Simulated scan of single mutants.
Amino acid sequence: MKVLHVNAGLENGGGLSHIVNLLTEAKNEGENFELLTLAEGPVAQAARAKGITTHVLGANSRYDLASLRKLTKFINDGNYDIVHTHGARANLFLSLIHKKIKATWCITVHSDPYLDFEGRGILGKIFTKLNLRALRKADCIFAVTNRFAQLLINKAQVDKNKVHVIYNGIFFHSNSEIPAKYEHTYFNIINVARTEKVKGQELLLKAVKKLDDQHIRLYIAGNGSQLEALKALTRQLDMAPQVTFHGFMTHHQLSGLYKRIDLAVLTSYSESFPLVLLEATDNLIPILSTDVGDIHKMIPGPEYGFIAKTGDIDSIAKVIGEAVDKSNKELRQIANNEKRYAEEHFSVRNQLETIQKVYDTLSENV
């Protein structure tokens, strides 16, 4: 079976990791998966570094519709059985040509389609409608949480027979491969996320402020439209000595920082199945999340991690306080419990096997 995964190519985060990890595992298993990005960028670069067969369409702008004919020809000439898109722009392009291609069309929904363009005015509303229309047209939808699957079926009115739940996965390392932790003075918390409203970093800052514990230090790793506003809020809350903004960090840079981190935290208003928490788990760091997506699948009980109420500063502060009050031995046990559980349930191999079963069913029905 010949499969082409398509992405705009400009992502730099969970979406990039999902695509590259999946195609890397497919390559390791000898599957015929290729990647096409609409433009040169981080996704194509990361894929090439992993030895994945990678093509770049060369779109001249974000919405270069003149390249649709080139895309149609590329897919049909390549004799692909499945075309699998990731992201709203790739979805839009395929929705405009899907009747002209011979391949079956699948989409992975990585995030809430109703929030993807939030805060972008009229254009945001138009792009939201176009993306929802694309989702209804596709032959198959992979939703990365059950909550997203139900949203697509009940609100977006996608045919329930087309929707399949697939959980994100990562490549886990043996504990002997994980760098040893550094001794450090403070209780160090890391938040790895784009600095956008949906990620809720303002909640995290206010929660840490509410705890009024100078023993806590917060590291925020990510870029986005809210970065300067968050820095201003930090000054307003008189928290500058406690908070460090790193901007975007590579995996290599994060692995260095993880050596002195006690807790990884996401305080998002909406999430899918956050890879950054799985990556923290791989590094034997206890994790805390607001009650978003299918987080209870990732953290099935208090012995595996911490869950706070979404959008609730008091709850976030309370749960962070519970983590701070635990001994190092208790935190290590939680981290070990979560890693063993995650390795069993959320590997990239499990993810690939689930997708391939759907591909096989689709091929049988052609």
Rank of each mutant, 00 (worst) to 15 (best):
1 M>G: 13
1 M>I: 13
3 V>D: 11
4 L>C: 12
5 H>R: 01
12 N>G: 12
14 G>E: 10
17 S>M: 10
19 I>P: 01
20 V>W: 08
21 N>G: 10
27 K>S: 12
28 N>M: 05
28 N>I: 06
30 G>P: 00
31 E>D: 13
32 N>L: 12
35 L>A: 00
37 T>K: 02
40 E>P: 03
46 A>L: 08
50 K>H: 15
52 I>M: 07
62 R>G: 13
63 Y>W: 15
66 A>Y: 05
67 S>A: 12
69 R>I: 14
72 T>P: 01
72 T>G: 04
74 F>K: 04
76 N>G: 04
79 N>W: 02
80 Y>P: 04
80 Y>L: 08
84 H>P: 08
90 A>V: 06
90 A>L: 07
91 N>T: 04
94 L>Y: 02
100 K>H: 11
100 K>M: 08
101 I>T: 05
102 K>G: 00
102 K>M: 02
103 A>Y: 03
103 A>G: 07
104 T>C: 01
108 T>Y: 03
111 S>C: 03
113 P>A: 06
114 Y>L: 15
115 L>W: 01
123 L>K: 15
124 G>V: 12
124 G>S: 08
126 I>Y: 12
129 K>H: 11
134 A>Y: 05
136 R>A: 06
137 K>F: 09
138 A>Q: 02
139 D>P: 05
140 C>Q: 14
143 A>N: 08
144 V>H: 00
146 N>C: 06
148 F>L: 15
149 A>D: 05
149 A>E: 08
150 Q>L: 14
155 K>F: 06
160 K>Y: 09
163 V>S: 07
163 V>M: 05
163 V>A: 09
168 N>M: 10
172 F>V: 08
174 S>Q: 13
175 N>W: 04
176 S>M: 10
178 I>C: 12
187 F>E: 07
188 N>M: 11
201 Q>D: 07
203 L>A: 00
203 L>H: 14
207 A>D: 09
207 A>G: 13
211 L>H: 06
216 I>P: 03
218 L>F: 01
220 I>S: 03
222 G>Q: 02
223 N>H: 04
224 G>I: 00
229 A>P: 02
231 K>T: 07
234 T>V: 10
234 T>I: 11
240 A>L: 13
242 Q>S: 15
244 T>C: 11
249 M>S: 15
249 M>P: 06
251 H>V: 01
252 H>A: 13
253 Q>A: 15
259 K>L: 08
261 I>E: 09
264 A>R: 00
269 Y>R: 13
275 L>K: 01
275 L>S: 06
276 V>D: 06
277 L>F: 04
278 L>A: 09
288 L>I: 02
289 S>R: 05
299 I>C: 00
305 G>D: 12
305 G>Q: 08
306 F>R: 07
309 K>M: 09
315 S>L: 07
321 G>Y: 11
322 E>N: 14
325 D>I: 02
328 N>M: 12
334 I>E: 12
339 K>L: 15
343 E>W: 04
343 E>H: 01
344 E>K: 15
345 H>L: 10
346 F>G: 04
348 V>K: 02
350 N>Y: 01
352 L>W: 05
360 D>P: 02
363 S>D: 08
